[in-house]
């Protein structure tokens, strides 16, 4: 097996999907929990227009932070998100081809597609699909989107989400994510360890709860105002994303009580669904 660096692997995947008609986007520049939440997925899957896109999305999950001490857990991990809308009939073969492109000879490995359906209640979104297991390691989440923002999709997109750290650790035969070679001579720890340490501290201990609530309410208000118009859907959705991230932070600070939790999730959902509906109407027009 080749011992390519993390970044080489990413380049190769991007090239592979670029060759298959994908727009290669850059990461969305807001804090999100998953590549799905970036508008390139969440909004683009709506409506009747075909679209293909691939991008790396750094994904923040404050509660998953482990102060850089756990070799397999990260507060922020990198996903390669691929959307093929509509999904082509040979989508799985195309996906398997991408593994070949990064040097995995599937004849030497065991690959299984195991049922794993996806649901994001805060986004009114769900789909069915699999987790792709390579020699017992989950390397990809494969989903046929069915609904987004509570809307049945016109065209069913395939969403392929690669866990890049896992894939790289697999290719480089590393037991710790931090030992992955990111660039020649530069390890993952050199690039990201400080970030994991400091943000774990911030997310669990330092974030000012009162300020987070203030921000949450301010962004929610802004979003609601923007949702009353039809010409600022993307800005409105950004505000919803900010609320979603603030919710995650509040959650990791343990600042959301039982009774509040359900309510806050419902608020975020309302914002996201509102933006999705406006976008869907615009696309259909």
């Amino acid at each position: 097996m080749s011992s390519q660096t993390f970044q080489q692997m990413v380049f190769q995947l991007k090239t592979y999907w670029s060759d298959r008609g994908c727009v290669i986007q850059e990461p969305y520049d807001l804090e999100v929990g998953a590549g799905t939440m970036a508008p390139e997925t969440f909004l683009r899957v709506l409506g009747p227009k075909p679209y293909r896109v691939a991008y790396v999305q750094p994904s923040r999950r404050p509660a998953d932070g482990r102060y850089g001490e756990n070799p397999n857990r990260l507060y922020k991990h990198q996903q390669l998100q691929v959307i093929l809308k509509p999904s082509p009939a040979d989508v799985i073969d195309q996906y398997l081809g991408s593994l070949g492109a990064i040097g995995i000879d599937l004849r030497q490995h065991d690959i299984k597609l195991e049922e794993d359906n996806w649901e994001a209640p805060t986004l009114g979104a769900w789909g069915v699909g699999w987790q792709v297991m390579l020699d017992g390691l989950e390397i990809t989440q494969f989903t046929y989107f069915q609904q987004c923002g509570g809307i049945d999709l016109e065209l069913v997109p395939a969403e392929i989400t690669y866990g890049l750290e896992r894939l790289a650790a697999f290719l480089q035969v590393k037991d710790s994510i931090y030992d992955i070679e990111w660039a020649p001579g530069v390890l993952y720890r050199d690039v990201r360890l400080a970030e994991e340490q400091q943000f774990s501290k911030y997310n669990f201990e330092l974030a000012d709860v009162e300020m987070l609530w203030l921000l949450f309410n301010a962004h929610e208000k802004e979003c609601q105002a923007l949702l009353k118009r039809k010409d600022a859907i993307l800005p409105a959705y950004e505000q919803a994303l900010k609320c979603s991230n603030l919710f995650n932070l509040l959650d990791s600070r343990g600042a959301i009580s039982v009774t509040e939790r359900v309510g806050v999730i419902a608020h975020v959902r309302k914002l996201a669904v509102g933006a999705a509906q406006l976008w869907n109407a615009r696309e259909a027009a």
Binding site: P71, Q108, D110, L134, D135, G136
Partner: peptide
């Protein structure tokens, strides 16, 4: 390779 891969996954899980 499959054995090695599965053993590494299990080791990570156990760790």
């Amino acid at each position: 390779l499959v054995k090695q891969g599965n053993e590494r996954v299990l080791r990570a899980r156990f760790n």
